[in-house]
Simulated assay, not measured.
Amino acid sequence: MVAPIYVAPMAPLAVVERRVDALGVAWLVYAGLILLTGAVGLTIARHALEGHEVWGPHHWHGPFFPLFFLKFGWFAVLGRTALAAAAGWGLLQKYSWARYAAIVAACLSLIHPPLGTAIGIWTLVVLLKGENAVGYQAMAG
């Protein structure tokens, strides 16, 4: 006896397309916010680590201390920005790889409250819900 196969129902493509387009725009806006806040934060950190009195005197001087952490910080900010922008652009263009990129970006953004957590949950709900997943595969196919 063969077990029955469950096939998820498909939401109307127009509804799925509106959800995915809104999500794509949100990821592009979030990518811009990541870049803006990261650049401001790293600029303030550079001034503080170089000995400028940003918020008062401190003792964080050292020959290699600021360089390593600032380079790592820029790498992290630019990597997060690129992933979020790729997810947003890919979702708007309905590429098949964009769904996976957005899910990875959503999982990574969950630890960045409040906006990262909100867009991460929204992305996971929209892209992992059965009817939306089937609809996206039909659009991207």
Rank of each mutant, 00 (worst) to 15 (best):
L49G: 03
A14R: 14
G73V: 05
A85G: 09
V25F: 06
A45W: 07
R80T: 11
V16Q: 06
L78D: 04
L124Y: 06
G56V: 09
L49F: 12
S109F: 00
A14G: 14
M1A: 15
L23E: 07
A87E: 00
E50I: 07
L36F: 12
Y30N: 05
Y6W: 10
P57Q: 13
V29T: 07
P63I: 00
A22F: 12
P113E: 07
F69V: 12
L70Q: 05
C107V: 14
V16P: 03
F72N: 11
L23M: 10
W74V: 01
Y30D: 00
V40G: 04
A138K: 15
W122Y: 10
W27K: 04
Y136D: 02
A82H: 05
I103C: 01
G24P: 01
F68I: 05
V54R: 10
H47A: 11
G62S: 12
G88D: 06
E53R: 09
I34A: 00
G24A: 07
A48E: 10
N132I: 03
K71Y: 15
A31R: 01
A87P: 00
G62Y: 00
P57N: 07
A106S: 06
A8Q: 11
G88R: 03
S96N: 10
W55T: 15
L33P: 04
V2W: 10
T37F: 14
L28N: 10
L128H: 05
V15N: 13
G41P: 06
V125H: 11
V40D: 02
R46A: 15
H112E: 15
A98K: 01
E50L: 14
A98S: 05
I119S: 02
Y6H: 13
L83W: 06
T117V: 08
K129E: 14
W122K: 09
L67S: 13
V40K: 01
V134Q: 13
S96H: 12
L70R: 03
A76H: 04
P113S: 07
V16A: 13
A84C: 07
L35Q: 10
V40Q: 02
I111W: 14
A106D: 00
A3D: 14
A22T: 13
L127V: 01
V40W: 05
F65D: 08
L110I: 12
L70M: 11
V16I: 12
P57E: 11
E17C: 06
M139T: 09
A118R: 08
F68H: 05
G88N: 07
V134M: 12
L33H: 09
V7D: 08
G141T: 14
T81D: 03
G116H: 02
I34S: 02
V104Y: 02
Q93R: 15
A3I: 10
I44P: 01
G88E: 05
S109I: 03
